[in-house]
Design a protein around this nucleic acid. Sequence first.
DNA 1: GTCTATAACCTGATAGAC
DNA 2: GTCTATCAGGTTATAGAC
Lengths: 207, 207
Amino acid sequence: MATANHNTGNLEQKIIEAARETFLNRGYSETSMSDIAVRAGINRPTLHYYFRTKERMFGAVFGSIVGALVPRVKDIILRSDIPIGKRVQLVIDAYYEVFKENPRLPLFIVKEIDRDYDNVVRTARELGLQTYMDSIRKGLQDEMDSGKLRQVPMRYLFMTFYSMLIIPFATCNLCNNLFVAEGECFDDMLAEWKAYIVSAVERTLTI
Amino acid sequence: MATANHNTGNLEQKIIEAARETFLNRGYSETSMSDIAVRAGINRPTLHYYFRTKERMFGAVFGSIVGALVPRVKDIILRSDIPIGKRVQLVIDAYYEVFKENPRLPLFIVKEIDRDYDNVVRTARELGLQTYMDSIRKGLQDEMDSGKLRQVPMRYLFMTFYSMLIIPFATCNLCNNLFVAEGECFDDMLAEWKAYIVSAVERTLTI
DNA sequence: GTCTATAACCTGATAGAC
DNA sequence: GTCTATCAGGTTATAGAC
C-alpha cells in the first residue's frame, strides 16, 4: 500500500484530466496555468514540475483530446463488408456520439488548426489518420468506378461532409437561437440535421 | 487649416483602422492593446484615452468588421426582380469577394459567436440582419409554394449554405494541405468549390 | 489631445525548503 | 514529489505633466 502523501502517477493523471477539460472548454489562448491548477486542486508550480511549459502541457493532452474521435470512427471505416453508403451513415453516428459528449470539440479543433497547424499535423500523423482517410477514399472510389455511385470529386465529398458536420456544433449559440423551433430543443434539431446530412451525401453520391 | 499637432478625429480613425486589422487577424484573446498601439504608431495610454477599455475598443470596431459583409449581400437579396436561384448564386459571389479580401473573417466571426454571443446578437440587430434573412426566407418560400422549388426546410438550407461557405476559409491551412492538387493553388480550389456549392444548393432546391 | 511614468495585476516559469 | 516564495515580463488601466 502506498503512503497517503505520495501518489505517484496518480496526481499526474489528475492534472492531465484537469488540463484536458480546461483546454477543451476554453481553448489554448483562453486557458491559463492557474485555471488548470485550480481545477486539479493544486498550485501552479506543481503543474510546472510535471509539464515544464504550458505548450508542453498542451501537447501532452491534445493527442488524447483528438484521439477520442479516432477509435470509434476507425472501427466503422475498416469494416469493408458494409457498403460504403451505410458506412458513411455510421461514421456520422459515431461523430455525433462523441460531439454530444464533447460539444466544444469541433470548435476546439478548428481553432487549433489555425493556432498551431504543425502540431495538428504531427498529432494526425501519430494517430495514423492518413490510413483511415485512404480507406474511405478507396472504398468510395471503388464503388464510383463500378458505377454504384456517381463520380464526385473526392475532396468536395469530404469538404461537404465535414462542413455540415462541424458548423452546427461550432456555432451552437447562433444555431440554437436562429434555427431551433418553439417547443423543440437543440438536440432535436441536431438529430433532424443528422438525417439531413445523410440524405444530402446520399443524394450527392447517387443522382 | 489645422495645426500640425492637433489632428482631431484623424488619429482616432487611424486607431480604429489599426484595431480593425489587428482584431480581425488575431482574434480578441490573442490581441493586446500594445499590438494595436504599435500598429497605429502611438502608445498604449493614448489608446485608453480614446477607448477606455479593450472591450469597448473591440465593440467599436466589431460592427464595422462584420458590417463589411452586409451592404454587398443586402443589395443582391433585395433585388426581387432576379429569380431567387440566381440571387443565391450572386450572394455566394459577394461573400467570396469579401472573404478573398479578408480570408480570416469567417473564423473571426465563428470565434466571436463563441466568445461573446451577446455582442454578436447586438451587432446583428444594429445592422438589421433580420430584414435580409426574412427577405431571403420569403423569396424562397414563395417559389417553394408556387412549385418552382422543392419544399426544403428553410433552416437546413441556411445551415447547408453557411457550412459549406465558411469551413474552407476557417480551416484554410488544413484544406490547402489536404485538398489542393499538385500544380493548383488554393484559390483555384476555392473557385471550383464555389461552383460546387451553387450546384449543391440548386440540386437541393430542384430535385 | 498626446505624452511619460507608473500602478495593480496576472502570466508563465524557477529556486529552494520540506 | 509537493509546497512557499519569488522572479521577470506582459497585461489592462490610470495619474499627471506638457
